[in-house]
Design a protein around this nucleic acid. Structure first.
Lengths: 246, 246
DNA sequence: AGTAAAAATTGATTTCGATCAAGGGTTTTA
DNA sequence: TAAAACCCTTGATCGAAATCAATTTTTACT
């Protein structure tokens, strides 16, 4: 039913499958084991770290999905990202040694914990891992800038289309079907992330379904027409077909 | 008239004033000089790097202000940030060796260029500089997440209020007045950054002025009531005074 | 299994900000 | 110093999505 996405542990770094192909010697592997802790699993809705907590670790997702949120002074909450296996959590904690957001498990989640104080030690041992981490940070900056564009400039339909496409790509990268997958988050969460009311999310999904671009049954999504979705992002010449109401 | 904000070069790292207080020996300083290039000044509207260019360098702003933009497939452009002296440009280029955005000088700008291929060399020479860079990246991630919240959840008034406050803080950090400063960007740019139409920016600034929170004459801003602005961000108990039309 | 609680859908109405339109200012450039 | 290009402001209208409201479906719990 609600089984989390699970991937094999990376045979090179022991973190996850998405690692660089590092060529490690046996003693290096053992050293690594002493630094990186495999955490006990987190359950649905359990917090991994909270906004304002003292920063102590970066986490790599091994299985399951995680959301991160920030809260402003007025108490409004914004989901800032969904994290898949192979992605890193807590990168925004380094600059002032405080987590600037909260990470919550969307389902049963298992993680690797990399204590911050071991980071230099780790860097020395594995310079490639450090570079990898910087690439992850760079990726996150680029992704968030794209998200700013989405939030500032696009319609509800475009946002949902873009969102589904990006989910699809990530499932594909993990070796799962890119045309059929299970949404790990609620409609409320989608709306929160995309800056839309739940009602708008629901209506828009229905609209896309009527148009024959997707099929959606509860949390199960099937993408029927990638072209139609890509169109919404402007990657096509013609405008999408206007909805013809029966 | 249009003189860029200029700060003294950092006596430690030679990059800028905002650096960590690094204790460098004379030979270390000389090595650094060979790695970091002081670029020729860029003029208003000149591009420093463009979206899609091969990634080659990270830049530190020494004087003047810079904006960065991303463009989506439909050709819509979004300003993703304004960069002040002491801040780093190009951090989003590392992950796939391509700049994922464009950086443009808002006024005459001088920069330090740190070639990417020298980055490892530099890291070895100055581990503290590497940590500093990671902190900058972390800061950028956190800032952008805050911006996502602003774009997804707040009204035009709140966005402008938040924007002016953050500008004010940055001017203060550079040793300038936090209550009176010159906006380095046009109303169009503000609107673009904040996800608002120019007309809305203009109207909202007028409204804030009528309410006596700010005074604005062209590009010169005076903040008259910090409390009033902070209120807009939810950092106060009472709601802001509704505008009483004369 | 049965019930309570939570999540999702659909409809009606309202609202904030986009868009359209026009006029006045202010820098550039020749 | 003209004129051209751009920038800013204000007004009127319109529309996409928020909000309010009600029902149905799904999930969680005893």
């Amino acid at each position: 039913m609600n089984s989390p996405i699970r991937i094999q542990s990376c045979s090179n770094c022991g973190l996850h499958d998405m690692c660089l192909p590092l060529a490690l010697t046996q003693p290096e592997m053992q050293q690594l084991d002493g630094i990186i802790k495999k955490s006990t699993p987190y359950r649905r809705n359990e917090a991994i770290f909270r906004q304002g907590d003292a920063f102590h670790s970066i986490y790599a997702v091994r299985a399951g999905m995680v959301k991160t949120t920030v809260v402003n002074a007025r108490g409004e909450e914004q989901i800032t990202g969904f994290y898949f296996p192979g992605e890193l959590l807590g990168l925004n904690g380094l600059h002032e040694n405080i987590y600037t957001g909260t990470a919550t498990a969307l389902e049963t989640v298992s993680l690797c914990e990399i204590p911050y104080i071991k980071l230099d030690e780790l860097s020395a041992l594995l310079p490639e891992l450090r570079r990898q981490m910087m690439r992850h940070m760079s990726q996150e900056i680029a992704d968030e800038q794209d998200m700013m564009l989405v939030l500032a400039k696009t319609s509800a339909e475009e946002r949902l289309g873009n969102f589904l496409l990006r989910l699809s790509q990530r499932f594909k990268r993990l070796g799962f079907s890119s045309t059929q997958f299970r949404l790990p988050m609620s409609r409320v969460d989608m709306g929160n992330y995309l800056g839309l009311a739940v009602e708008t999310v629901s209506r828009t999904l229905t609209k896309l379904q009527r148009r024959g671009v997707i099929k959606i049954e509860g949390k199960e999504v099937t993408i029927l027409d990638f072209g139609g979705l890509t169109c919404l992002n402007g990657n096509c010449d013609e405008e999408p077909e206007p909805l013809r109401i029966a």
